[in-house]
Amino acid sequence: MTEPKVANLPTTDLSHIFCGNQTEIWLRFKNSAVNDLAWVIFSPDLVEKELGNSVSAGKTLWGLPDSQQAVIHWLTKLDENISLRGLPDRYTLTIKQSPQRLGVYFEQLIAFALQSLPAVKTNRPALLAQNIQINEDGITAGEFDFLLQDQQNQLLHVEAAVKFFLLPQKASLPYDPMHWLGPNAKDKLGLKIDHLLAKQLTLFQRSKAARKKALQLNGNPTSCEAQSQYLVKGMFFIHWSALIAQPAIANAECLMGHWIHEKELKNLIEANKTSQYFTVSLLKKTEWLTGNGVNNPLTAFDLPSPSAIPYMLELTHQPEHSFADDVHTEKKTSRLMVVNNYWPEINSPSRMI
């Protein structure tokens, strides 16, 4: 892994944190759901393409990179379709599928792509079943996120997850996955990967009931085995004044953002409120994948209440030499995760003994 290249900077300087730009495939389209779909397909994996005996499912699911132009053509046609029939909508998830459940929306987008992508041009597998719970001897053995059948009638089991992990400022081993925590500090990247490898991806091998169910769903089985793969997307966050760091199992091209304590945020916004080149927008949970593309600047006076923490902000930078209505302008964006003032402590200091 290369050495970090970002130095510590004054605590109100935003200029160093802009790394993304509007040319990414998942920011090209008019419809937000199409952008989200493109993000699911084209955004870089969060972790390495090989973990244990399993590999990332990206190439298997979408045929990338060979099918890239075919997939982009499909997304473009979808974006031009006013009805967008069947495409999951980030803003209309049912009550049962709470808008706070970003993972539900993520899986809906995967399922839509697996059912709608032109199979001939992309060589994608067929979706047999989704979210199938496996019970064995009265005990839940696990669940298949996705059970698929490839062009050769082989079974494929895919576990999918969208995750966001932060590196605490005082972490002594930034390359250790156990030091990367979720907004809920009980969640750890190391524990997630251990569970993925030991439990989720071994379900077919561990459970006779799982094998029986899978073969029942496979109309033309040529093998009693199934290949298990993973699709893990998301973003890693470092403190916004910290040096760049990644966990050892990170995909070198993974998406990265910054995090900040709530008490630091007001000072940051106030220090940049007069700048015509920076805007800060609040994102709803289901906007975390590709943002909202809305220029609705946030001020220190309309920050969410502490009960809304953690929340995500989208920061946009317009180069000083450009004009706001210049379609050729390359705007740059970044993500800022806001956590409570005592994170990564699990409990408020007032309740700690």
Rank of each mutant, 00 (worst) to 15 (best):
L181N: 02
N220F: 15
A38P: 06
S54T: 03
T2L: 06
F236I: 04
I72Y: 13
P297N: 09
R90K: 10
T76F: 14
I139M: 12
R85G: 01
S116T: 05
A308P: 09
A160D: 03
S15D: 04
G52S: 12
W240L: 05
L155I: 02
A171R: 02
M1D: 03
E136V: 08
F323D: 12
R101C: 07
F146D: 10
A198F: 15
K186V: 13
G20P: 08
L27C: 09
A271W: 00
A271T: 00
P10Y: 02
H258P: 01
K30D: 11
T76Y: 15
F106D: 02
P44S: 15
G190P: 00
E314S: 10
K49S: 13
L78S: 08
H317W: 14
K199E: 11
L156R: 14
K273S: 10
V71Y: 04
L313F: 06
L181F: 05
S334G: 14
G293M: 10
L109P: 01
I269M: 01
E48G: 07
E320G: 15
Q152V: 11
D66R: 15
S98M: 06
P221I: 15
N220W: 15
S56M: 02
V47S: 04
L298N: 03
T92C: 10
L255A: 15
K213W: 13
T333K: 13
L155R: 06
G63N: 11
A111W: 05
T299W: 01
I193R: 07
G20W: 08
M312I: 04
N53F: 12
P44M: 07
H73N: 15
Q227N: 14
A171T: 01
V294G: 08
W62I: 11
N135K: 09
E314G: 13
L289Q: 05
V55P: 08
I346W: 00
Y105I: 04
N135F: 08
L265D: 01
I353V: 13
E314T: 08
T222N: 14
T299P: 02
T2K: 12
L201I: 10
M178N: 12
P297C: 06
R90C: 02
N8H: 11
S67F: 03
E345S: 12
I95S: 11
L75A: 05
D13I: 00
A209E: 14
S228A: 09
N218A: 14
V6K: 14
L203I: 01
E48Q: 13
I346Y: 10
R85M: 09
H179W: 11
P168Y: 05
G138H: 08
A126Y: 14
L201A: 06
V338N: 07
D89E: 09
A198R: 14
K163N: 10
L148H: 05
N341E: 04
L93W: 01
A209K: 12
L128C: 02
